[in-house]
């Protein structure tokens, strides 16, 4: 990375922070105005319908890009290792919904698959 990477990170950080602070501040102001906010009204329809899917979609895309073999790798061998590692990883993620445990199982599974396959 170049010398300007901290600036890039800081700018992204400001953007991420704004996505957290602006909606919270506005919602608390509505609370101040004594407007009873029911949970079902918290997210306007457009946000509920669209933004709720943005995060999972981008993470899915990142997951696909992360598990597909890079050029020059043995495609089927790499897919076999990835598949062998993904199965227990997904199982642990679904069963326990624990981020750290899932990452740990993923690392161990892929390490084992790399040795065995």
């Amino acid at each position: 990375m170049g010398a300007d990477s901290p600036l890039l990170f800081a700018l992204i950080g400001v953007g991420v922070y704004l996505t957290r602070v602006v909606p919270l501040a506005l919602a608390l102001r509505r609370e101040d105005d004594s407007q009873e906010i029911d949970e079902s009204d918290d997210a306007p329809g457009a946000m509920d319908g669209w933004l709720g899917f943005v995060g999972p979609s981008i993470i899915a895309a990142l997951l696909v890009a992360a598990v597909l073999p890079e050029p020059g790798q043995d495609m089927w061998l790499e897919l076999a290792r990835t598949g062998a590692a993904l199965a227990p990883t997904v199982a642990v993620a679904v069963l326990f919904e624990n981020l750290g445990l899932t990452v740990l199982v993923g690392i161990l599974s892929y390490g084992l698959a790399s040795v065995v396959i």
Partner: peptide, 24 residues
Amino acid sequence: AGVSALLLSLRHVLYGPALAPSLR
């Protein structure tokens, strides 16, 4: 990279309003 990271963080927009009733 920047746009992807920001798009990914758009889900945070939902969090504040959902928690606001408990953060008065």
